[in-house]
């Protein structure tokens, strides 16, 4: 009984063969040629996967790499940057990859990536994770495993991508910071391909989905601790900066800051948005049961011993209005 080479390769987590040419490898695709921080992070994830598989990282950028920071892409982990003209359709991209037989194709989870990824996997007979937060390589079988967020990212499901190429449409915001390794070397080339021109679009107003207290992902709740109209104005400013709606507790209703439809708590609406920022709310039972379903609760108020403190995920103890103004500024970046 002994090891053969492939077993050993698998155990070592890599291949002994030197990667050659443009076949195999991990391909990161920027359909519109843009290489921003999100793309650099995606290249970094491609680098990690390629190292585990033992292959090159290629960046394929459309629109002749317009706005492409090729140096940055190489420092972030790309071995080779290839550009092409225009923006690819699913079929054009599939034609490009058909001979090259990539092990993995990584697309950012934006409009273009979401439109191209599923069709690409289907056309090439590969496998797909339409919403990946992370990628890993299983050390025994060398299979690519995508981590798909479920239940509002309360956990991630491992999706084992069985067929090559493994196409992953990745949520770049969830990826770690991009590498910046000046010692890395890479080359830049042109595929000489001319893809389709992106179609022109007749822009119209987006049919509005009414945002209500029940449907808004972010809710700023104004409470007693804001003390005056200037304090409430800070709450409104913060809601505006976060793209959420402003609501209030019973005091806010009594002060006339909000109407009854914006009252949060058992006596008003029970809400479960992704984020609640409670300003100057000390947290009575009615209020806390009204926001019990919230994904994350931030409380800013003056009393370190208030009932809301152990209940909130994050607390800022101090003047809520002052915090609201500072946070609005910080959120606007």
């Amino acid at each position: 009984m002994g090891f053969d080479l492939s077993d050993l390769q698998a155990l070592m987590g890599g291949s002994f063969e030197e990667p050659t040419g443009e076949s195999g490898g991990v391909w990161v695709v920027s359909p519109d040629g843009l290489i921003d921080d999100a793309m650099l992070r995606l290249i970094g994830k491609g680098r990690v996967v390629a190292d585990a598989l033992g292959g090159y990282v290629y960046l394929l950028a459309g629109c002749n790499g317009a706005g492409a920071d090729t140096e940055g892409a190489i420092r972030a982990g790309a071995d080779k940057v290839l550009t092409a003209g225009g923006m690819p359709t699913v079929n054009e991209l599939a034609d490009f990859f058909r001979e090259r037989q990539p092990q993995a194709v990584l697309l950012p989870r934006n409009r273009l990536g979401k439109a191209l990824g599923p069709g690409l996997a289907q056309t090439l007979g590969g496998s797909l994770c339409p919403y990946a937060a992370d990628l890993a390589v299983d050390p025994i079988y060398q299979r690519i495993v995508a981590h798909q967020p479920i239940l509002d990212d309360a956990a991630r499901m491992q999706v084992i991508l069985l067929a090559a190429p493994a196409v992953a449409v990745m949520e770049t915001a969830l990826l770690p910071a991009a590498f910046n390794e000046p010692w890395r070397q890479g080359e830049v080339g042109d595929t000489q391909l001319m893809w389709s021109e992106p179609p022109s679009h007749e822009m119209v107003d987006r049919p509005a989905r009414p945002i209500t207290l029940k449907t808004s992902p972010v809710v700023v709740v104004a409470g007693q601790g804001l003390t005056d109209d200037a304090g409430f104005a800070a709450a409104m400013e913060l809601a505006d900066a976060l793209g959420g709606v402003v609501a209030g507790d019973v005091t806010a209703l009594d002060m006339g800051w909000i109407g009854e439809e914006s009252l949060v708590g058992l006596t008003g609406e029970t809400i479960g948005p992704e984020l609640v920022i409670a300003l100057g709310v000390d947290g009575d039972t009615s209020f806390m049961m009204g926001v019990a379903e919230a994904g994350c609760l931030v409380a800013a108020q003056a009393d370190a011993g208030a009932p809301i403190v152990p209940f909130a995920d994050y607390n800022v103890v101090g003047d809520p209005a002052e915090f609201a103004r500072a946070f609005a500024k910080a959120a606007r970046g």
Partner: peptide, 12 residues
């Protein structure tokens, strides 16, 4: 034939 199969959970 399935192109992907489910593994375990990764918890934060």
């Amino acid at each position: 034939a399935a192109d992907a199969e489910m593994g375990g959970l990764v918890l934060g």
